[in-house]
Simulated assay, not measured.
Amino acid sequence: MSTDPQTTISIFWADDVAHNVRELGALLHACVHDGASIGFVLPFPQEESEAFWIDNVLPAVQRGVRLLLVVHRDGRIAGSGQLDYDTPPNQPHRAEVRKLLVHPDFRRLGLAKALMAELERQAGERGRSLLTLDTRTGDKAEPLYASLGYKTAGIIPGYCRDPFQGNLDSTTLMYRAL
Protein backbone atom coordinates (compact mmCIF):
# COMPACT_ATOMS: atom_id res chain seq x y z
CA MET A 1 0.00 0.00 0.00
CA SER A 2 1.55 3.27 -1.03
CA THR A 3 0.36 6.84 -1.36
CA ASP A 4 3.47 8.41 -2.97
CA PRO A 5 7.18 7.55 -3.28
CA GLN A 6 7.98 9.08 0.14
CA THR A 7 4.97 7.60 1.93
CA THR A 8 3.89 4.00 2.47
CA ILE A 9 1.08 2.48 4.49
CA SER A 10 1.49 -1.05 5.75
CA ILE A 11 -0.16 -3.52 8.08
CA PHE A 12 1.79 -4.03 11.28
CA TRP A 13 1.59 -7.60 12.54
CA ALA A 14 2.47 -8.61 16.10
CA ASP A 15 6.20 -8.89 15.34
CA ASP A 16 6.16 -5.44 13.75
CA VAL A 17 4.53 -3.94 16.84
CA ALA A 18 7.06 -5.62 19.14
CA HIS A 19 10.04 -4.50 17.03
CA ASN A 20 8.83 -0.91 16.69
CA VAL A 21 7.37 -0.25 20.12
CA ARG A 22 9.78 2.60 20.86
CA GLU A 23 8.92 4.49 17.67
CA LEU A 24 5.18 3.75 18.04
CA GLY A 25 5.47 5.02 21.60
CA ALA A 26 7.14 8.20 20.35
CA LEU A 27 4.25 8.75 17.91
CA LEU A 28 1.61 8.41 20.62
CA HIS A 29 3.67 10.49 23.06
CA ALA A 30 4.04 13.34 20.54
CA CYS A 31 0.33 13.34 19.69
CA VAL A 32 -0.76 13.44 23.34
CA HIS A 33 1.71 16.22 24.11
CA ASP A 34 0.33 18.13 21.11
CA GLY A 35 -3.15 18.02 22.68
CA ALA A 36 -4.76 14.92 21.16
CA SER A 37 -7.61 13.65 23.31
CA ILE A 38 -7.06 9.95 22.77
CA GLY A 39 -7.40 8.51 26.24
CA PHE A 40 -4.32 9.87 28.00
CA VAL A 41 -3.60 12.91 30.19
CA LEU A 42 -0.45 14.73 31.21
CA PRO A 43 1.96 13.95 32.64
CA PHE A 44 2.37 11.19 30.06
CA PRO A 45 5.86 9.70 29.99
CA GLN A 46 7.31 7.76 27.06
CA GLU A 47 7.18 4.55 29.13
CA GLU A 48 3.39 4.77 29.46
CA SER A 49 3.12 5.39 25.75
CA GLU A 50 5.14 2.27 24.96
CA ALA A 51 3.13 0.27 27.52
CA PHE A 52 -0.07 1.12 25.59
CA TRP A 53 1.28 -0.62 22.48
CA ILE A 54 2.55 -3.63 24.44
CA ASP A 55 -0.41 -4.07 26.79
CA ASN A 56 -3.33 -2.96 24.62
CA VAL A 57 -2.57 -3.07 20.92
CA LEU A 58 -0.19 -6.03 20.70
CA PRO A 59 -2.53 -8.56 22.39
CA ALA A 60 -5.45 -7.52 20.15
CA VAL A 61 -3.28 -7.80 17.02
CA GLN A 62 -2.05 -11.22 18.20
CA ARG A 63 -5.65 -12.40 18.72
CA GLY A 64 -6.53 -11.24 15.22
CA VAL A 65 -9.27 -8.84 16.35
CA ARG A 66 -7.51 -5.56 15.56
CA LEU A 67 -5.74 -4.30 12.48
CA LEU A 68 -2.92 -1.79 12.90
CA LEU A 69 -1.96 0.33 9.91
CA VAL A 70 1.23 2.38 10.02
CA VAL A 71 2.24 5.13 7.64
CA HIS A 72 5.93 5.70 7.03
CA ARG A 73 7.21 8.91 5.54
CA ASP A 74 10.83 9.84 4.99
CA GLY A 75 11.90 6.69 6.83
CA ARG A 76 9.93 7.46 10.01
CA ILE A 77 6.67 6.27 11.48
CA ALA A 78 4.51 9.29 10.70
CA GLY A 79 1.13 7.95 11.75
CA SER A 80 -1.09 4.99 12.51
CA GLY A 81 -4.71 3.92 12.66
CA GLN A 82 -6.48 0.94 14.13
CA LEU A 83 -9.51 -1.04 13.03
CA ASP A 84 -11.10 -2.92 15.92
CA TYR A 85 -13.34 -5.71 14.70
CA ASP A 86 -13.73 -7.56 18.00
CA THR A 87 -17.51 -7.38 17.84
CA PRO A 88 -20.27 -9.52 19.34
CA PRO A 89 -21.95 -12.21 17.22
CA ASN A 90 -24.86 -9.90 16.33
CA GLN A 91 -22.50 -7.25 14.89
CA PRO A 92 -20.25 -9.05 12.38
CA HIS A 93 -20.87 -6.23 9.89
CA ARG A 94 -19.35 -3.47 12.07
CA ALA A 95 -15.88 -2.26 13.15
CA GLU A 96 -14.55 0.69 15.11
CA VAL A 97 -11.83 3.09 14.00
CA ARG A 98 -9.49 3.71 16.93
CA LYS A 99 -6.58 5.99 17.64
CA LEU A 100 -5.99 7.66 14.30
CA LEU A 101 -2.63 9.33 14.91
CA VAL A 102 -0.48 11.57 12.75
CA HIS A 103 2.76 12.87 14.25
CA PRO A 104 2.72 16.68 14.55
CA ASP A 105 5.78 16.85 12.25
CA PHE A 106 3.74 15.24 9.43
CA ARG A 107 0.37 16.97 9.65
CA ARG A 108 -1.37 18.65 6.70
CA LEU A 109 0.12 16.17 4.20
CA GLY A 110 -3.01 14.06 3.68
CA LEU A 111 -1.77 11.18 5.84
CA ALA A 112 -4.91 10.99 8.00
CA LYS A 113 -7.10 10.81 4.89
CA ALA A 114 -4.85 8.14 3.39
CA LEU A 115 -4.98 6.10 6.61
CA MET A 116 -8.77 6.39 6.77
CA ALA A 117 -9.13 5.32 3.14
CA GLU A 118 -7.00 2.25 3.78
CA LEU A 119 -8.82 1.44 7.03
CA GLU A 120 -12.09 1.57 5.12
CA ARG A 121 -10.69 -0.65 2.36
CA GLN A 122 -9.43 -3.15 4.90
CA ALA A 123 -12.80 -3.10 6.69
CA GLY A 124 -14.53 -3.92 3.42
CA GLU A 125 -12.15 -6.82 2.82
CA ARG A 126 -13.17 -8.16 6.24
CA GLY A 127 -16.88 -7.95 5.40
CA ARG A 128 -17.46 -4.87 7.54
CA SER A 129 -20.00 -2.44 6.12
CA LEU A 130 -20.40 -0.02 9.03
CA LEU A 131 -17.61 1.92 10.74
CA THR A 132 -17.97 3.85 13.98
CA LEU A 133 -15.62 6.18 15.83
CA ASP A 134 -15.61 8.89 18.44
CA THR A 135 -13.71 12.14 18.57
CA ARG A 136 -13.54 15.02 21.02
CA THR A 137 -16.31 17.45 20.09
CA GLY A 138 -14.87 20.47 18.31
CA ASP A 139 -11.47 18.82 17.81
CA LYS A 140 -9.51 19.18 14.55
CA ALA A 141 -10.40 15.60 13.59
CA GLU A 142 -14.18 16.14 13.64
CA PRO A 143 -14.34 18.10 10.34
CA LEU A 144 -11.90 15.63 8.78
CA TYR A 145 -14.24 12.72 9.51
CA ALA A 146 -17.25 14.71 8.30
CA SER A 147 -15.43 15.46 5.03
CA LEU A 148 -14.93 11.72 4.57
CA GLY A 149 -18.66 11.04 4.83
CA TYR A 150 -18.97 10.24 8.54
CA LYS A 151 -22.27 11.30 10.09
CA THR A 152 -22.79 12.43 13.66
CA ALA A 153 -24.87 9.99 15.68
CA GLY A 154 -24.78 12.08 18.82
CA ILE A 155 -22.73 13.93 21.38
CA ILE A 156 -22.02 12.75 24.91
CA PRO A 157 -21.24 15.64 27.28
CA GLY A 158 -18.54 15.26 29.94
CA TYR A 159 -17.15 12.14 28.28
CA CYS A 160 -13.39 12.53 28.76
CA ARG A 161 -10.77 14.56 30.59
CA ASP A 162 -8.86 17.20 28.66
CA PRO A 163 -5.19 16.12 28.53
CA PHE A 164 -3.97 19.53 29.79
CA GLN A 165 -6.56 21.23 32.01
CA GLY A 166 -8.41 18.25 33.42
CA ASN A 167 -11.86 19.68 32.58
CA LEU A 168 -14.37 17.32 31.00
CA ASP A 169 -14.88 17.43 27.24
CA SER A 170 -17.74 16.09 25.15
CA THR A 171 -17.25 13.41 22.52
CA THR A 172 -18.95 13.13 19.15
CA LEU A 173 -19.98 9.65 18.04
CA MET A 174 -19.80 9.19 14.28
CA TYR A 175 -20.52 6.45 11.76
CA ARG A 176 -20.22 5.68 8.07
CA ALA A 177 -21.81 2.98 6.00
CA LEU A 178 -19.35 1.62 3.47
Rank of each mutant, 00 (worst) to 15 (best):
V17R: 04
A18Y: 11
H19Y: 11
V21R: 14
V21M: 10
V21D: 11
E23D: 13
E23T: 14
L24N: 01
L24P: 00
G25A: 04
A26D: 14
L28I: 02
A30P: 08
A30C: 08
C31E: 05
V32K: 00
H33W: 09
H33L: 09
D34V: 01
G35H: 00
G35C: 01
A36Q: 09
G39N: 00
F40Y: 02
F40E: 00
F40H: 06
V41A: 07
V41Q: 07
L42Q: 11
L42P: 03
P43M: 03
P43G: 01
F44G: 06
F44T: 05
P45L: 07
Q46W: 04
E48Y: 01
S49C: 05
E50H: 08
A51T: 05
F52I: 06
I54S: 10
I54G: 03
N56T: 14
V57H: 11
L58T: 03
L58F: 02
P59C: 08
A60E: 10
A60G: 03
A60T: 12
V61W: 04
V61R: 11
V61E: 06
V61P: 11
Q62N: 01
Q62R: 15
R63N: 10
R63C: 13
G64S: 13
V65F: 01
V65Y: 01
R66M: 15
R66P: 06
R66A: 14
L67M: 11
L68H: 02
L69H: 05
L69G: 05
L69V: 05
V70L: 10
V71T: 15
V71Q: 08
H72G: 07
H72Y: 11
D74G: 14
G75W: 03
G75S: 08
R76L: 14
A78I: 08
S80P: 12
S80C: 15
G81A: 15
Q82N: 14
L83T: 00
D84T: 04
Y85F: 15
Y85A: 08
T87H: 13
T87R: 15
T87W: 04
T87F: 12
P89F: 13
P89L: 15
N90D: 04
N90I: 12
N90K: 05
P92K: 13
P92H: 06
P92F: 02
H93C: 07
H93T: 06
H93L: 12
H93W: 03
A95Q: 09
A95V: 13
E96V: 10
E96K: 12
E96I: 12
E96C: 10
V97R: 00
R98P: 03
K99I: 14
V102I: 06
H103V: 05
H103T: 04
P104C: 09
D105A: 12
R107L: 08
R108A: 12
R108F: 01
